[in-house]
Design a binder for these strands. Structure first.
Length: 442
RNA sequence: CGGGGUAUAGCGCAGUCUGGUAGCGCGUCUGCUUUGGGAGCAGAAGGCCGCAGGUUCGAAUCCUGCUACCCCGACCA
């Protein structure tokens, strides 16, 4: 993409409403635009990041055996009356009425709808286990939306729903999602720590929140220091291996970790002082095993091997990609701007033409741009007629992980500069070497 | 939902107390000079001063009502 033809409204000054760093940087980098309290447009640069996050979430859901579908944002109130949540959900649910005076709502979550889908088609235990998910907009009419897309009213959520014949099978489904989440967050460059959580209005008895540590986190969290050194399972792990899944779960839940609501002060203080981590955390995922709460209420039953009908065991599993975009920035930024992990960077690399209009520099940039593009890289080429300082600032602000800086001084000696945004390390290389080095990474 | 605040050009702000028809910085446009960490000079465009009503010869400014947004707290993917 040539920057001169792209739509990237970056700002030098920070709009005053932005309090936390991710919100400020998302606005300044031209990723989002506020349309109303807690409601945002995702501008082109932000959308690229969001799409990359979604792709990783999707890959890991699929790897764990979940199957994607797409449910609507607008739902009928009738389904919610069946489960009893139409009354129970409260003012967070945005209720609307259509032209025929029918009660509708903007979905805050989809347990009812997925249960309706399940019971319409699945009759036999032989069709289990089943895990269906979608990535869809949700609306929760928060009393006080804040922190940009971190706590917005409209937000994107990946929500998966598992259906199993019995509690043991449901437990395995839970462990699979647990493992998939660890892998997902690791691929997004985040260190997420599972913490036992309250189940709230979703219901059930087993639940974990995945929390990343960040000073701007909304809740206080407490955990064992060893979590910071733990590595997520690699892609060779077998999701159908019950013992392996249980092993991952046990490993990641064996140490103390709790949010403020679930905090056990005595247990925490029993740890050696050096092992205690007391910090702020951002919730980026939440999983629930709630048994037959919805299947009972909505009669989602299957015939078991013995011919008798049983209510299916269910679980639900949520990740907020829009919140994740902000959380990744909270975890990766410096004074100059965002520092994206390669996996979610809006572009794989940037080329800064320090003297647009200079024949040699233009030609060198064009060649680099073409060659990297042919190698399958997504490159942002800053071909604008701007001063070098403005280009450096823009590249750093939007956080491109790898930048090739091309100017007359270097070219005179046959080199360009390759800069690593994260480490700040720069090296002078021939254009060939720079292309090879960048493409070798993929 | 309680408490506090703000609303003036794309962004950040001054002007409001003390009424006289709107200004600064950044950004944008034109031209020239510049070009390795957000350039300089010259010129230009851009504003129902949140909305509605009132007071007044005259309202960004005073009065009344409304709306939107932000912050602190309680609640939440």
């Amino acid at each position: 993409m040539r920057l001169s033809r792209y739509f990237l409204p970056i700002m030098r000054e920070t709009p005053k409403e932005a309090e936390i760093v991710s919100h400020r940087l998302m606005l300044r980098a031209g990723m989002i635009r506020q349309e109303a309290a807690g409601i945002y447009t995702w501008l082109p640069l932000g959308l690229r990041v969001l799409n990359k996050i979604n792709a990783i979430v999707r890959e890991e859901q699929n790897r764990a055996g979940a199957i994607e579908l797409l449910m609507p944002v607008i739902q009928s109130a009738d389904l919610w009356r069946e489960s009893g949540r139409y009354e129970a959900y409260g003012k967070e649910m945005l209720r609307i009425r259509d032209r025929h005076e029918r009660d509708m709502l903007f979905g805050p979550t989809n347990e009812e709808m997925i249960t309706g889908i399940f019971r319409a088609y699945v009759r036999s235990y032989k069709d289990l286990p089943l895990n269906l998910y979608h990535i869809q907009w949700k609306f929760r009419d928060e009393v006080r939306p804040r922190f940009g897309v971190m706590r917005s009213r409209e937000f994107l959520m990946k929500d998966a729903y598992s259906f199993d014949i019995d509690a043991a099978a449901a437990r395995h489904s839970y462990n699979k999602m647990f493992t998939a989440y660890l892998r997902t967050f690791a691929r997004l460059g985040l260190k997420a720590i599972p913490m036992r959580a309250d189940t709230g209005p979703i219901g059930g008895d087993l639940s974990h929140e995945f929390i990343i540590l960040a000073s701007t986190g909304e809740s206080a969290v407490f955990c064992h220091r060893d979590f910071t050194g733990m590595a997520a399972p690699d892609e060779a792990i077998d999701f159908d291996d019950r013992a392996a899944m249980r092993g991952v779960f046990d490993q990641w839940t064996g140490l103390y970790a709790a949010t403020e609501e679930m905090h056990d002060k005595a247990a925490f203080e029993a740890l050696p002082e050096a092992d205690r981590v007391s910090a702020r955390g951002i919730e980026v995922g939440h999983i629930f095993n709630f048994g037959t709460k919805y299947s009972d209420a909505m009669k989602a039953v299957v015939n078991g091997p013995d011919g008798k009908e049983v209510a299916v065991q269910m679980g639900s599993y949520g990740i907020g990609p829009t919140r994740l975009a902000a959380a990744i920035i909270e975890a990766g930024h410096d004074e100059a701007g965002i520092v994206w992990p390669d996996s979610v960077a809006p572009f794989d690399a940037g080329i800064a033409n320090l003297k647009a209009g200079d024949k040699a520099v233009d030609a060198a940039c064009e060649e680099l741009y073409t060659r990297l593009g042919n190698a399958g890289m997504d490159v942002l080429y800053d071909d604008r007629d701007e001063r070098p300082g403005a280009k450096f600032a823009a590249m750093d602000l939007i956080g491109l992980p790898h930048q090739i800086i091309v100017g007359p001084k270097g070219l005179a000696g046959g080199t360009v500069e390759l800069k690593n945004r994260r480490t700040g390390q720069r090296e002078n290389l021939t254009p060939d070497a720079a292309v090879n080095k960048l493409t070798a990474r993929a």
